[in-house]
């Protein structure tokens, strides 16, 4: 899923400075699962913003709403009755796709992103998430013992580890496992170290971001109105 985290309150306060009515919109997709922008996080942030205003006797209303998803137009449509001057700030608590979809559908609204969209990852334990994929568009993890060197090596080495790998940790931080250490260990356990002599991939980055913004069209699904 997409892993995100909330921006510092200070930055969010900056968005609504001089605003009187804000609508904070969560998303029940990825950001609910990673505890960044679901019903609960919407409640907490809205409450904090109201408290902040109230303690200083500032006139601010923060209303709350959580949509099924913010990356599908049909759910964004639900906002139609709430737009058109009802709020002077719309705060989207989805990944950055949410505020983009809202801003596109309702061009007259002031839309702000409340989350920082961080990476594609999974939960290592409750409250801990780690990056596992870089969406390079051409998956090759089967060549590396089921581990992704592109997303999980700081240098995206396809023939690692580099000289900075020590004690199973990355040179960038001892909080990061050296994925190449894991790849090598997995091959050693399987008695297949020689296999690593072969892997000599030249990555074609066109399927990644380097090919420009990507788009997928599935003709059989597209409705022709």
């Amino acid at each position: 899923m997409i892993i995100a985290e909330r921006k510092p309150v200070e930055e969010i306060k900056g968005f609504i400075r001089d605003k009187k009515r804000a609508l904070l919109i969560g998303c029940r997709g990825c950001v609910t699962v990673c505890n960044a922008g679901g019903v609960k996080e919407v409640e907490i942030l809205a409450s904090l913003l109201r408290l902040d205003a109230k303690k200083d006797d500032v006139d601010l209303t923060v209303d709350e709403l959580t949509l099924e998803r913010q990356c599908d137009p049909e759910y964004i449509e639900e906002l139609a009755s709430l737009t058109g001057g009802k709020y002077d700030a719309i705060l989207s608590m989805a990944c950055s796709i949410g505020p983009q979809f809202i801003a596109r559908r309702y061009p007259g609204e002031q839309v702000y992103p409340v989350l920082n969209t961080c990476f594609l990852g999974g939960a290592m334990a409750h409250g801990i998430w780690a990056e596992h994929c870089q969406a390079c568009g051409n998956c090759v993890i089967h060549l590396f013992g089921g581990l992704c060197p592109i997303a999980r090596c700081a240098k995206s080495l396809l023939n690692g580890p580099c000289g900075g790998s020590a004690g199973g940790k990355c040179e960038v931080s001892d909080q990061i496992d050296c994925v190449w250490h894991l790849i090598v260990a997995k091959h050693m356990e399987a008695g297949a170290l020689d296999r690593l002599l072969e892997v000599d991939l030249l990555k074609d980055w066109r399927t990644s971001r380097d090919g420009g913004p990507r788009k997928i069209t599935r003709e059989e699904l597209v409705k022709n109105d």
Binding site: P8, V9, E10, K13, I44, L48, L49, L51, D52, K55, D56
Partner: peptide
């Protein structure tokens, strides 16, 4: 920490 961030 959250309260502190809104000046409480």
């Amino acid at each position: 920490k959250e309260l502190e961030s809104v000046g409480i």
